[in-house]
Design a protein around this nucleic acid. Structure first.
Lengths: 202, 202, 202, 202
DNA sequence: AATGAATGAGCCTTCATTCAT
DNA sequence: TATGAATGAAGGCTCATTCAT
């Protein structure tokens, strides 16, 4: 099935925004990458900035929705953090360009739009904050600065989008598991058994 | 003492490149921020891109030099990692804009220039790789994927530049110590005493 | 019939480049003369320099093609030279601006482009060199330095573009004939009859 | 003896204006070629345009003066034309850059300045016109259009500046003699003896 | 005599966008 | 749906020139 034109434009934008940055990408670049004229481009998008906002919004919506789905019914903070990390890492490894765009181009958006995007991001990060906070409250985690630890872990996981390659030696599952491991250690959950399991597996 | 003009231009560039991105910063923005005409700007820089490259180069040189100085004479991998993390965190908290520029704008540079910058970055990262590698080799660290762990920690520390504020509740020293803590836990160094020491101190 | 826009740009360029020189003509001058905005200009040309190269190329191509057509089947060197001179003079009198551009602005072109233009010019001048050379070889022409004579005649004829005006007393045909006369005398063809014929005719 | 600075500037200008054109030459180019800063340049010249005008004026003054000196006491039109041609050719071969500048950059000058330069040029050309005119009047020359012939010869001789190289096979004296020959033939002076002499001599 | 600093104006070119077809 | 044509604004950079030192 032929690719929907709107989708083609979207993908072109994702590719170029991630590679050259929003301001480094001209609409001529977008048009060329989409095999469209610059004029035609405007049948499939509002403006360059709206296109960017759409990409960010979708990326964050998907992340938020699947995170909420993943956590449904879970109470154990360690398990919640593990799931969050794995989901986050998988998302960033699979959609490195979209997530890099979210991370790098927020400053481009006009205030109103930016606020709506930041809201989504904050909602998502609250899931992390809650997991870490609950873990510390219940004594499962021992970390001196939960807030700092949360953001440190998030940044660590975001980084995956900047370097992970599917062609590397590490499978996506192993990567996600490894990161969950590192994260749980970082909060002081010291998951003896699983750590050893991971070690044995290699 | 009045600020050297060249330095004024540099600072304007650092501020704007970090805030709005390289491509998002116009030469006229730079001129205004430097209280200079656009023409005068060119007495103090080669081109916008060279200015960027200079900023990056200086930032990385400084980081690399101080890291090498910091590690001189040290052999214990845990201590080396701790020092690297603390230095890195401090540098990123103190010069968040410079380091963000290094992280975000590499793609702007022409191939030749980029290579020279990447070389510096790689030299610096090798210090981390060596510390982690030696730790694993000597059994002090237990981590399944040293390479991944190293980059995960680096990204985590880079993140500091994206959120740390001196006006926050955490002092720079505490922040650096905390990150070192998290990092050592992440590599499985489980530094009982120092971790407790750290906990007690807060 | 309305003038094609591309052609309007071309004519504006010819007029301005010839009058004020390539470097003396700004893109804004071109736009104004073409009744276009500077941005629109770029729908009809690659760059200012490409526009110049196109003008030169077309001018030389036309000259070369018509010269080759004119000489087809001719062997007599005197007749060939006469035809070349007349054609050249006519072309330079009719298209003085294009030919002046070719003569004056070669130095502007980038090496590669320049080479391609110079090649055309050389191909054309070879027709002159052959005519003069054959005339000397067969004894019809007596000139001590055929190469010098050829270039002297060419320069003399090029000059037409710098002064001829259709409003002058001399018709184009008479002008061309007169130049042919001067040229043949210069190579020592001393065409008694035709010279007298020419004299009688005026 | 060290070269006077003002003279160094002048020479740099001659070189660059001739090579790249007036508008193609920046004052930075001039400064570099003169081994001066752009600011220092202005101790030795009024403005770029005045520098150009000076060069042109001197070139034409010299030509005019030496032509008048050369013709002093001569009445024979053929001899006068021969001397003019030889002088002109020599001047253009020896100072090809100055003369090219005079020929190519008149259009740059502001009206007032231009007029003063054109006046000089016209005074010089009147010497040619007189020689040709007298020759025709006295029947020594036979040319249908004296005015056209005069300008044709002038352009032919101007051309020397565009191609003559001292490294070529032809000596400057031979070149000048050859041109005089061509010119006299062109006006129909048919100087049997001298032509043969020329031929024999080579 | 010499120049580093400074600049308003201008350079060529591309920007994102609109609109008639 | 698709696009050639069009553009005002802005892009990075250089222009010729002045002036204080």
């Amino acid at each position: 099935m032929a690719l929907d034109t709107r989708e083609r434009v979207r993908r072109a934008a994702v590719k170029l925004f991630a590679t050259k940055g929003f301001h480094g990408t001209g609409i001529r670049d977008l048009a060329q990458e989409s095999n469209l004229s610059t004029a035609s481009l405007y049948h499939y998008m509002g403006s360059k900035e709206e296109l960017l906002a759409d990409i960010m919004r979708d990326c964050l919506r998907t992340l938020l929705d699947s995170a909420e789905a993943e956590l449904t019914g879970l109470t154990d903070p360690a398990e919640r953090l593990r799931r969050l990390v794995k989901l986050h890492v998988r998302a960033h490894a699979r959609k490195p360009r979209e997530t890099r765009i979210v991370d790098h181009e927020l400053h481009v958006l006009a205030p109103t739009t930016r606020r709506s995007i930041v809201e989504l991001r904050d909602a998502y990060e609250r899931l992390w904050a809650d997991a870490v906070g609950d873990g510390v409250a219940s004594g499962v985690f021992t970390t001196a600065h939960p807030g700092v630890t949360r953001i440190a872990l998030l940044e660590m996981c975001n980084g995956v989008a900047r370097w992970y390659s599917a062609r590397g030696s590490l499978s996506l599952d192993d990567l996600a598991t490894h990161y969950a491991e590192v994260a749980l250690r970082a909060v002081g959950a010291c998951p003896q058994r699983s750590a050893e399991g991971q070690s044995r597996g290699e």
